[in-house]
Write a protein that binds this DNA or RNA. Structure first.
Length: 430
DNA sequence: TCTGGGGTCCTAGGACCC
DNA sequence: TCTGGGGTCCTAGGACCC
């Protein structure tokens, strides 16, 4: 049996954990640059504020109802996530951290130790709430897809008390009939449209599909597995996350600029900063990257069809996680995609082709340099973790401007303090 | 005026090899 | 000159997820 634990309105719940006065008010959290709505309290949902909506479109509605808008604060959310995940990891033999606010637990055979699994899930839910103030819902089922579905039903139906266990064909059928096909895990906009045209509108209808139909219309083997999972046959194994962290196969740092830019030096400031942050993430998971991509985008809302994003990629002879080297390579790639006189709104650095470990191979050729780089990077990471992200930056990452803030940096007008992670922003009690 | 930032997996097609 | 069946690796693009 799998359990899917999903935090309700996670970012809003994190903010509420430190600001009880938000508890009774409609609250939303905004994306980078305060651009879009990325998390909503139940009250905000009830007002009809859609997920992902640009702020400027719903601003009048929000002002009318006194909705509190907060800039996103990922240091806080990451730390709260870690607390939730650490507790969950202590409650099941295997945990897969699926996203910042969701985890799959493997509970196979756990009845022996904990009794009925729905009661156990209720205890977990209560304890997460007590420890972190984060509300959750839990779905339990024989497959991951059904656990997701059970979670969704639990979230929508308050009478279930936040937990739903699907342990019989009757309960499974009951749940399948209550979920619209577009709300099934793995059914997005394209597939939903196609299924509706075929007259399939519920999860139950999808579960009755033949394998051939699933293969033909839902992306081949992916669709076939999806339908099997709805029928109760597991096709997706749990991928345990070791020591509470998730090792990525790709690391990207991309950002829309605070304002459109065209000068090479300005954009280089952004790209160098992204490369630097990507390298930090890389070292945190003890990887080195052998493929680096830099891309530049023009405004996709300006013309139809949208202008192309130009990218350049290089495969390094030796995988690296050295900030200075990755910045050097990123700069060269930027030179290949940047065109004078073009206005850009967004850039990104993507790392790929990971190898375990770091820079060992470098040491074969230049042992001294390797050790120096390693020590420097460790120092950099520890300073940044002590004094807050971005305290120590490699010179290029500061950009050409003499001002501390590069011209690419965006707005965060509604940001709350990093209550749990920055020394100068610690929560004051009383 | 203002429109997020991450990720995953799969498939098809081309280049190249034996 | 024509004939064949495997393979691998890489890239681009599409669909999905939170």
């Amino acid at each position: 049996m799998y359990a899917l634990v999903d935090c309700n309105n996670f970012y809003v719940s994190c903010e509420r954990a430190f600001q009880p006065r938000l508890e009774t008010r409609p609250v939303v959290v905004l994306s980078n640059n305060d651009g879009c709505i990325v998390s909503r309290s139940a009250e905000a949902k009830a007002l009809g504020i859609p997920m992902g909506e640009p702020l400027f479109k719903v601003k009048p509605l929000m002002e009318q109802h006194g909705v509190v808008a907060l800039s996103s604060n990922y240091a806080l959310y990451g730390d709260m996530s870690h607390r939730v995940m650490s507790y969950l990891a202590s409650q099941a033999p295997e945990v897969e951290i699926y996203s910042i606010d969701e985890a799959f637990l493997s509970l196979h055979g756990m009845e022996r130790y904990h009794g009925p699994l729905d009661a156990y899930a209720r205890r977990i839910r209560t304890e997460v709430k007590r420890r972190t103030h984060i509300p959750t819902c839990i779905g339990l089922a024989p497959t991951k897809t059904l656990a997701k579905l059970a979670n969704r039903v639990a979230k929508k139906d308050p009478s279930l008390g936040g937990v739903l266990l699907l342990d019989s064909p009757e309960r499974r059928q009951w749940a399948l009939e209550r979920v619209a096909v577009e709300d099934v895990w793995g059914i997005g906009r394209q597939y939903a449209t196609k299924l509706h045209e075929m007259g399939i509108t519920t999860a139950a209808g999808l579960a009755r599909c033949s394998e051939a139909v699933a293969r033909k219309h839902l992306g081949g083997v992916v669709g076939a597995r999806l339908v099997r999972e709805l029928q109760g046959y597991p096709c997706h194994k749990l991928n345990p996350s070791e020591d509470g962290t998730l090792a990525r196969q790709t690391i990207a740092c991309t950002r829309t600029f605070g304002k459109p830019l065209s000068q090479f030096e300005d954009i280089l400031g952004a790209v160098a900063s992204f490369a630097s942050r990507a390298a930090e993430k890389l070292r945190r998971q003890e990887s080195a990257a052998s493929v680096l991509t830099v891309f530049l985008s023009q405004n996709r809302f300006d013309t139809t069809p949208p202008p192309h994003t130009r990218s350049a990629q290089v495969t390094l002879p030796v995988a690296s996680n050295d900030t200075t080297e990755l910045i050097r390579v990123a700069r060269a790639l930027l030179g290949r995609v940047w065109q004078p006189g073009t206005v850009y709104v967004k850039a990104g650095v993507v790392l790929d082709g990971f190898e375990k470990g770091g820079n060992e191979q470098l040491s074969l050729f230049a042992p001294d340099r390797h050790e120096r780089v390693e020590r420097l990077m460790q120092k950099l990471d520890s300073l940044n973790s002590r004094f807050g992200k971005g305290s120590v930056l490699v010179a290029t990452a500061l950009g050409s401007s003499t001002k501390h803030a590069g011209p690419w940096k965006g707005q965060q007008q509604h940001r709350t303090p990093a209550y749990t992670t920055k020394w100068n922003e610690l929560w004051e009690i009383g």
